[in-house]
Amino acid sequence: MRVGIIGSGVMGEVHAAGWRQTEAELIGVHSANLEQARRVAEEFGIGVYDRLEALLEQADIVDVCVPTFLHKEMVLRSAAAGKHVVCEKPLALNLQDGQEMIEACQRAGVRLFVAMVVRFFPQYRLAQELVSKGQIGKLGVMRLKRVAYVPRAELSDNWYLDESRSGGMLVDLMIHDFDYARWLGGPVERIFARVNRATDGPGQYAQALLRFKEGSMALIEGGWAYPPGVFRTALDLSGTEGLIEWSSDEQAPVRSFTLSRDGSAAAVGLPTAGLATDPYALELQHAYQAIVSNEPFSVTAEDSLEALRIALAARESMLTGQPVSL
């Protein structure tokens, strides 16, 4: 099948590299930023589509990698064109939009895959498998960490920092761990969250306390709070019969110690997976395979909507200072 990417920013480029590791034919990219699109196209030897209509016409699968506030429009247009859709997370900025997007794809008879990439990180996946096999007994307390630095403005317009366009840190970043915690713990009963913002600038740090209907609880930590280039993630899953610990602080299979240049941090922090396992490629391989063979996705658009529901509840709790029941 032929894949076209909409958006040429950080995620457009990451996904282009991911698609390269699938059997799909990556035909090209469309972007509002033509110069950036040309760079990406050149890097991957693909075409640039000046007009969205032209890309929609020629692709079988459209990969929506534009900023979050544009997801809805692009997903609806792709569905209307009868194309399968891969959409970056978060699916939408609010539940109603997300629901409309899911329904539009259903009506159009096209598949909608939301790229909840953390489910494809090998350590997160292995931990989930071990928990589901009962290796740590009944789940008790989950601890999840995802703290990065403030996304930097490579462009003049840093939409990540604009909550009305990105949903903000809780919706853009912490949604990964809300989704992961729900994957393991089941439906959420209630959530309480605190967010502290920088006295100056867009920095912020949040902690959320979740209680699940099946009994377990979770402490989820997220932030745009570290110095540029520092991105730490961790999981700690404890149960009645055992414990799983993992932290990105642990040693990587290869470490290098070199004289480095200043300002070498990427614009937006992405966790690294280690050697030879690109989770972005894994998620796109999975999406592609499921679309081609018409099999269910391992993570559904409804899952991504539920993760959004938790993130929005966290934001509400932060504003009201009270727990929010789901």
Partner: peptide
């Protein structure tokens, strides 16, 4: 809550505070 030893003890074994 007592999430870790529900059969063995009658006190809280799990606690998260914010």
């Amino acid at each position: 809550d007592n999430l870790f030893y529900p059969q063995e003890v009658a006190v809280d074994t799990a606690g998260l505070l914010l």
